[in-house]
Computed example of a mutant assay.
Amino acid sequence: MDDTTARLVDALLTTARDRGLELRRESAVLDETGWDFRVLHGVDTGGARWILRVPRRPDVAAAVDVEARLLALVRDRLPVAVPHWRIADRELVAYPRLAGEPAASEDVVTFRLHWRIDRQNPPQSYVEALGRCMAALHATPVEEAAATGIPVRRLDGVRARFGEQLVLGRAELGMHDTWWGRGRRWLDDDALWSPRSVLVHGDLHPGHTLVDDTGNLVGVLDWSDAEVGDPGTEFVEAARKFEPSMLDDLLAAYAAHGGQTWPGLARHVREGIAFAPLTLGVLGLTSDQERYVEAARARLGVLTHG
């Protein structure tokens, strides 16, 4: 641990101690990979494992109260665990570490995913539980979700945002004309877009899902992107890192557990998966993540047959 990291760790431990949480210094491990939060893993004097999150920016700090209310809303509605924040203010969030490990973790150097489940053939129990979890989340009354303070996006606003991304992709990411045409056809086809807004996690990729040793889904992390919006986006992040057949299984599990579908849902999600590089590329432009920008240019600059 270099001197800069050591000072950061000591400062975080002091902040926690000031709030009544004593962690053992030798147990502390700092994780700097998050965009929104600096994270510290540690063990308290009684042997319990904790997660500490420190907001990196004022806008993230200002949203802590909102996320705390959201977690309280969904905790008893879902069939899996979510973080139970014991300390939550603009300087520090702390909660007991949930059981399980991420289904996939990104290498901080190579950016490659290391999988704890089979990416090509994920356990049916994982897919089934994920569909059930999404169905339960999306059934949350929209009025209650909106009362937490999370963003509420009208359906026309969701489509308008994608239209803006298309324009930016053409202007800044070298989007091929065939991608532009494909995006416009998707945007203009009313049958493909959801007839309702729901509460969505917003970033339900495998790294935010926790699994046990047998691949069972046991928890969901990182709710900072939650909003009331397009349910189709939930399937994009949940499925795009897997083989295409996983989406069919996930949609079936979602419907079996009461999730409300519409005839164009599968096509909508497949278009969302295809255009994921555009979404990431736009994010890269606005957050100085050059690797996302370059990846988007490489993918969108060539012919698409969709």
Rank of each mutant, 00 (worst) to 15 (best):
M1N: 10
D2L: 03
A6D: 14
R7A: 14
A11R: 15
A11G: 12
L13I: 01
T14P: 00
A16N: 07
A16T: 05
D18M: 10
G20F: 07
G20Y: 04
L21G: 08
V29M: 13
L30W: 09
L30V: 03
E32S: 14
E32P: 09
G34Y: 02
G34H: 06
F37R: 07
R38T: 15
G42P: 02
G42I: 05
G47A: 01
W50Y: 07
L52S: 12
R57W: 09
P58A: 13
V60K: 00
E67D: 03
A68V: 10
R69T: 03
L71S: 06
L73M: 08
L78Y: 09
P79M: 06
P79E: 09
V82H: 04
H84A: 15
R86E: 15
R86F: 00
A88Y: 04
R90Y: 00
V93I: 15
A94Q: 10
E101I: 02
S105K: 06
E106T: 15
V108T: 12
T110I: 04
F111Y: 12
R112S: 10
L113Q: 15
H114C: 03
W115S: 03
R116D: 05
D118I: 00
N121Q: 14
P122L: 08
A129E: 14
G131D: 11
R132G: 14
A136K: 12
L137A: 07
L137T: 08
L137V: 06
V142A: 14
E143W: 01
E143G: 05
A145K: 07
R153T: 06
R154T: 15
V158G: 07
R161S: 12
Q165L: 00
R170P: 01
R170H: 12
L173T: 08
D177I: 01
T178C: 04
W180Y: 13
G181S: 12
R182K: 01
R182H: 10
R184V: 12
D188C: 01
D189V: 02
D190E: 13
A191E: 13
R196A: 13
H201F: 13
G202F: 11
G202L: 11
P206K: 08
D212F: 11
T214H: 15
G215E: 06
L217Q: 04
L217T: 02
G219N: 07
G219D: 08
V220S: 09
L221M: 15
A226D: 05
E227S: 13
V228P: 06
G229W: 10
G229K: 09
D230C: 11
P231E: 12
P231N: 13
P231F: 13
E234G: 10
V236D: 04
E237H: 07
A238M: 08
A239M: 06
R240H: 14
E243S: 15
P244K: 06
S245Q: 13
M246T: 15
D249L: 14
L250G: 09
L250E: 04
A252G: 02
A252F: 01
Y254V: 12
Y254H: 10
A256N: 03
A256Q: 09
G259I: 03
G264S: 05
L265S: 07
R267C: 08
H268P: 01
H268E: 08
E271N: 14
E271W: 06
E271C: 14
I273C: 09
A276S: 12
P277F: 01
L278N: 03
G281M: 05
G281F: 02
L283R: 08
T286V: 02
T286H: 10
S287D: 02
R291G: 00
Y292A: 02
V293M: 05
V293C: 05
R297F: 08
A298R: 15
L300F: 02
G306C: 02
